Simulated scan of single mutants.
Amino acid sequence: MQEITYAEAQPIDGYGPGFFRIMDRLFHEPLLVSPWSVRGWGGLTDTATPLTLAGRIDVLFLGTGGDIAHAPRTFRAALETAGIGVEVMSSPAACRTYNLLLTEGRLVALALLPVEG
């Protein structure tokens, strides 16, 4: 096995019921994670925060908690109009996908809702 390195990116170190661990810090709220920052996110009604990434990322992985749920039409439309692709999946799958694409140097970000439990 080969150790994965992320240069200066912000990988997801772990997650569980109600929390995410990033760079050895615990977070208990919805988050917007990019290779260069981690910040709170207002959830599916907050389009403004992810739009700040326009021109800096190609794809936003939307982690909708423990199960896959549809992104609100207005949320998806606003991001896609700004040139950001949106991929919806459960939060655990979104974390794994984000970490993998970080190792490839892709321009990705992650909007996460915690897994209930």
Rank of each mutant, 00 (worst) to 15 (best):
G66V: 06
T49K: 00
F19A: 04
A9G: 00
G117I: 02
G40I: 07
N99L: 04
D13K: 03
L113S: 08
G83L: 08
D46V: 09
I57S: 14
R21S: 06
R25S: 14
F19R: 09
A94Q: 02
L79S: 02
Y15I: 01
R39L: 12
N99F: 03
P72Y: 04
F75A: 01
T81S: 13
F27Q: 09
E3D: 10
E3R: 04
G43C: 10
E80G: 04
D58V: 04
A94T: 04
R76Q: 15
R73I: 01
G18C: 05
V38W: 04
L102R: 06
A94H: 04
S90N: 02
G66M: 08
E8W: 08
N99Q: 07
P11L: 09
Y6T: 08
P17V: 01
H70N: 14
R96C: 01
E3W: 02
F20N: 06
D24K: 14
D46Y: 08
F61P: 04
L53C: 12
L53I: 02
G42R: 04
Y6A: 13
A77Y: 06
V88F: 07
I68C: 06
F75M: 00
G14P: 00
V108P: 08
V86K: 00
S37N: 15
S34H: 10
E116N: 12
E116L: 03
N99G: 05
F75N: 02
G40P: 02
L26W: 04
V86Q: 11
I12Q: 01
A69M: 15
L113A: 13
Y15Q: 13
L44E: 10
H70R: 10
W41Q: 13
R39V: 12
E80D: 00
L79E: 13
A109K: 11
